[in-house]
Write a protein that binds this DNA or RNA. Structure first.
Lengths: 176, 176
DNA sequence: ACACTACCAGACAGGTCTGTCTATGGTTAG
DNA sequence: CTAACCATAGACAGACCTGTCTGGTAGTGT
């Protein structure tokens, strides 16, 4: 990836996540990235393309991080939710990038929503696989439940309900 | 309340909820409400005032609805979550108005975020009170957990994860 | 030497947004 | 009657947004 494109994506990721997608304009991104406007439109057909790239990259990043977490069976799920809880209470946390993007793009047929759906399907399947590995017969409904917990934890973290985050993590760990 | 103000609030509530706050402009609201621009600015100092009024009214509406649900002890909580689940799968559901607003207003010191905080504090306290009434000693952490569940259910409903909604409701009911 | 690609700076058009303003018409209370 | 109030229509300013375009620089491979 070219340096300019890298800087654009990094800047956009930081600003989109921290301040929202619609509220951050192209001018702001290219200024902070130190890139010319023509260069931006050379790399991205439109702003939506940048949004897509941002979410796609974030999706890949999270997959790598979560799938790298070691452990076996339900312990691994516990470690994942422990990490989720820690991240949700950490500095600079402003919720789940995918949930936030879905809120900003109300039209469910928009390409952005496709990535959000992909991410959620991956997480659900990942949990289902881990549960099956752990010998759970009722893996599917439990995986759904863990998806709901993940969402709730992310939201509570965004709104600084730290005790709720801890409570959610503890319950998720106790359930599995 | 004057008719014009009533129409403005109704139209704004409908559009803000369905399409998002930042994406819906004043011009659109006054056009669909059939109200002159000067009339709008006679009733609301700025767009933010309309947003505040929208969320404040929605807060009051939800309080009335939830507090009117009958039953005693944990059965009442079950009825509330049953209703939450049903609403989250219903037509036109696009998530929790407060969570969506919090996502759109990233600055936690913005007045909008104050209403969101108030709503969440009310829900948490309401659950805590019902749990205490039911004789639960560990009411506070369970109330926190129910807040997380509420968030997760709303998110899953917004993203059409209907089975996740049902799973979340079932777990919440089983837990309490 | 040449073509190609990546990059920069910044003007520009066309649209949208918020909020203000003028000018006018009803209705109601004193 | 008149003054206060609520409402209408719509022009307008100023800011911001996206996306296009011109023109110029630097490096790279053939």
């Amino acid at each position: 990836m070219s340096e300019a494109r890298r800087r654009l994506l990094d800047t956009a990721s930081r600003l989109f996540y921290a301040e929202g997608i619609h509220t951050v304009g192209i001018d702001r991104i290219i200024a902070e990235a130190g890139v010319a406007k023509a260069t931006f439109y050379h790399h991205f057909k439109a702003k939506d393309d940048l949004v897509i790239a941002y979410l796609t990259e974030e999706y890949g990043r999270q997959r790598v991080v979560f799938e790298a977490i070691e452990g076996s069976g339900t312990e691994r799920i516990g470690a994942i939710f422990d990490m989720l809880g820690t991240a949700s209470c950490g500095p600079g946390f402003r919720g789940c990038p995918f949930l936030n993007a879905a809120t900003e793009f109300a039209d469910p047929t928009h390409p952005v929503r496709g990535i959000v759906d992909d991410y959620r399907a991956w997480f659900r399947d990942f949990m289902g696989t881990l549960l099956t590995e752990a010998g759970r017969v009722e893996a599917a409904p439990t995986a759904e439940f863990l998806l709901v917990m993940r969402d709730g934890i992310a939201v509570s973290g965004m709104l600084n309900d730290v005790t709720a985050v801890r409570s959610g993590v503890a319950t998720a760990m106790a359930t599995i």
